[in-house]
């Protein structure tokens, strides 16, 4: 009160304080959302380009991971039931984009059932994919040793191919690898699981 009288500009000062506190509020909310997004995309454990977290779906999840899962994987199961790995970049570290074609190559993971699915940057299946959203362990074409090559993006192909929606502006996308009832050796060493490589081939 004393300061107000001395300054003689109480209105300006009050507006300044309100602006300052609104900025503080905004900073608090924005840093929270950024922290949460980061935690889901890159936090936890990585095996190659694939990121996951042992506490997805579990009540042991910390507040940041819980919030991150709510945004990017609501209703996910815990690791003993299903491990979800997500990749947002190729082997070179470049972000996955719908104007490029990729080769996903690897060997069948040690799990009861698996699938690889492409999602748009809104976390939903990509429009214009004509049903080619994923490949899975029961229908993938593979060699006698369990090795496979899946093409992602580019022109439609027969066999192992996942669409990223075809022509149009390039948008980021991500791949999710689901391992249902994984072998305990995977759950016990999420960072050491041998997972497919994602190699960029060509961009339009």
């Amino acid at each position: 009160m004393a300061a107000r009288q001395r300054n003689g500009k109480p209105v300006r000062r009050a507006l300044g304080v309100i602006a300052l506190l609104l900025c503080a509020l905004l900073v608090g909310v924005v840093t929270a959302v950024l922290g949460v997004r980061n935690r889901f995309a890159s936090g936890g454990v990585r095996s190659g380009v694939w990121a996951t977290n042992a506490h997805i779906g579990s009540s042991g999840a910390g507040p940041y991971l819980r919030a991150g899962v709510a945004l990017g994987g609501l209703l996910a199961l815990n690791a003993g039931e299903t491990v979800y790995y997500t990749a947002t970049t190729d082997e070179s570290g470049a972000s996955l984009g719908t104007s490029c074609e990729y080769r996903v190559e690897g060997r069948e993971p040690d799990t009861r059932w698996w699938s690889i699915t492409a999602y748009g940057d809104d976390h939903f299946l990509i429009p214009g994919s004509n049903g080619r959203y994923s490949v899975d362990g029961t229908t993938v074409e593979k060699g006698a040793d369990g090795s496979f090559v899946v093409r992602v993006g580019g022109a439609p192909r027969a066999g192992n191919w996942i669409s990223t929606g075809g022509a149009g502006a390039s948008r980021p996308f991500s791949l999710t690898l689901r391992l249902y009832n994984p072998d305990p050796s995977i759950v016990g060493d999420l960072a050491g699981a041998p997972l497919p490589r994602i190699v960029r081939e060509a961009c339009s």
Partner: peptide, 28 residues
């Protein structure tokens, strides 16, 4: 006031992280 701003930012941050999953789940 700056000190108060720091407190407001911290509380907003913690509340957002806490509320976000509950709000998303409620919507679903």
């Amino acid at each position: 006031w700056l000190l108060l701003a720091v407190v407001v930012a911290a509380v907003a941050h913690v509340l957002t992280v806490w509320l976000l999953p509950r709000a998303v789940m409620r919507v679903a």
